[in-house]
Design a protein around this nucleic acid. Structure first.
Lengths: 330, 330
DNA sequence: TTGTAGGCGTTATCAG
DNA sequence: CTGATAACGCCTACAA
């Protein structure tokens, strides 16, 4: 690897001048600048980021933590983040937390050790009090995740509204017996609290009581969806509609419902969440809640980069619109 | 950030001793080791990776380049790579090439500048002669990608066999008019050459001539699949079966075929590639080629880490089995 | 078993 | 406009 010294030697100039050219400083004559550029080209010189970091420069790297990259919602989110970051000259380091608090913590070390300039968290596994101290080492922002009173930028979707419009739609279609799948524990302060509130609000407005038998906790995958549908089939009194936490769960339920000979939406209405590509591929096509993933990712990067450029920037919070996409399962 | 000097100061020892403790060197008395460990804990000390890199140490980071992370095949691959790497104490830096040679090149710089110890390429955009020089800076390996005479480890799937068994299956079902979608240009030495050969071999064995009107180039996405189906519908003479390059293309075709009132597989048999989760969700469920993505990712990481540990290791090449999953579209 | 000194590649400071 | 020098945090000969 050629170093700055090699370029200096080749051009007969000092390291300082080379550095000035690299960093586009003023006070370098055009003539020498050209000379340096040519020499760099010739040697195939690339600045050593490790040295720059050590010297206290920015790393032009941002870290992104996601729960599971195979979840299409997050792979699309990562996609936009990565692309937006690249356009701004940043690299992206990705880590999957796999819902593991320790792994999340290990990732935050990157900030402390200046491997990344800032971090975008799309999920949170640790208590906020554990994460907060890392703010001393660089900006952290929340994207798609949401903590009350955390003094960090947040870009998020209105999950409460998402659940509300979904459930309201089912009610408008005449359903009273509505099941509900959640990725959390249906607890008052859990990560699923916003959607829970939306769900409850819609029911309450229609004077429908919550039937706890029809609340399914900790549901995520296609497999989970299949299991839920089998549980429902075994019930004496079945719901006529179900609000799921994701298109994947909905897909699993639909596959299983067909095996049982159920007609959708006549025998069972189903509504997904995310509007992933599969929503259009299912038969019948899935009614679902669309989340503006692209916008969210782009906005997150824009905000983080702004904070990196100007550390005095005040904390912003954005809430992006969310909408119902009506197809054929409701 | 506390540094090694702070620890030295606090313990009253030298930096050298601290370093020895960090790196588990011999010749440190148990007593002092304990003292140092305690001090590190107290200060919340973490070694600065930038400094270590500069000093020429390993970065315990590996780079992975994928074409598009939103492609489930690659997000699953990245998932296993990331998980396997984490277990071995490595971080992963991910980049999407987006089929852009320049972006790929930018990523390879990470190796040159010692930001990553090694690189796993799951796709190649540049000529190999462009990539080869980077081998001087660290190991590069191919995973799912394949170059003849490149003296690097390769973990790959037998794409030729994959296409062969798929097309053969269609022929066995009585089809003679078989269309073919490829992600490449159907050229003799293109990236799609293996599958092309498999396709051609199967046809030849059955004495069927290739109809170039039914060869569709540069196909990738659901949208592409829709377009292809529309092109087929506009033809005077239509194929009765189609071998697609991915489950996504197959999905797009199926969606569109239904709009045209086509029955699958009676009017048109379709076979996918990858066995992604959607294959089971489609209606009817998709016959497809399964690729052992998990094994491939794990193996790639194992090999790369081995090479990192022992630079004299000889180059390995692995070919993983590939199989036909028969469902309802053929 | 422990410590001293020097250097990895870069950039900021200060001096011409 | 240009250059010499110190410093970032760490590791490793070499010395003790």
């Amino acid at each position: 690897m050629p170093t700055i010294s090699d370029v200096a030697k080749l051009t007969g100039l000092s390291k300082t001048t080379i550095s000035r050219v690299i960093n586009n400083h003023q006070y370098v004559s055009e003539e020498k600048r050209a000379l340096v550029l040519k020499a760099m080209q010739e040697l195939g010189y690339t600045p050593n980021p490790a040295a720059r970091r050590l010297r206290g420069q920015s790393t032009t790297t941002i870290g992104v933590i996601v729960p599971r990259i195979v979840n299409p919602f997050f792979s699309y989110l990562v996609n936009t983040i990565e692309t937006a970051a690249y356009e701004k000259g940043y690299q992206v380091i990705i880590s999957q937390s796999n819902e593991d608090a320790e792994k999340e913590l290990a990732f935050l070390q990157l900030l402390k050790t200046k491997q990344v300039d800032g971090i975008i968290m799309t999920a949170i596994e640790n208590e906020w009090s554990v994460i907060e101290p890392f703010l001393a080492y660089g900006p952290i922002m929340l994207c798609n995740e949401y903590i009350t009173n955390a003094n960090v930028p947040i870009v998020r979707l209105n999950q409460q509204k998402g659940a509300y419009i979904g459930v309201k739609h089912l009610i408008d279609r005449g359903h009273h017996k509505i099941a509900y799948c959640t990725g959390g524990l249906f607890a008052e302060d859990g990560k699923d609290k916003d959607r829970n509130h939306g769900f409850q609000k819609a029911l309450k407005e229609a004077d429908i009581a919550v039937n706890t038998k029809w609340i399914f906790l900790n549901q995520y995958s296609i497999e989970d969806g299949k299991k839920v549908m089998n549980q429902i089939m075994a019930m004496d009194e079945r719901p006529t509609a179900i609000f799921t936490g994701s298109d994947e769960i909905a897909a699993g339920m639909m596959i299983e419902a067909k095996k049982h000979g159920l007609k959708i939406p006549e025998d069972m209405a189903i509504i997904g969440f995310d509007d992933q590509p599969i929503a259009e591929m299912l038969e019948p096509q899935l009614t679902t809640i669309r989340q503006p993933v692209e916008k969210m990712g782009e906005l997150a990067v824009a905000i983080l980069v702004d904070m990196l450029d100007d550390t005095s920037l005040k904390v912003q919070e954005h809430e992006l619109p969310i909408e119902l996409v009506i197809r054929k399962t409701t």
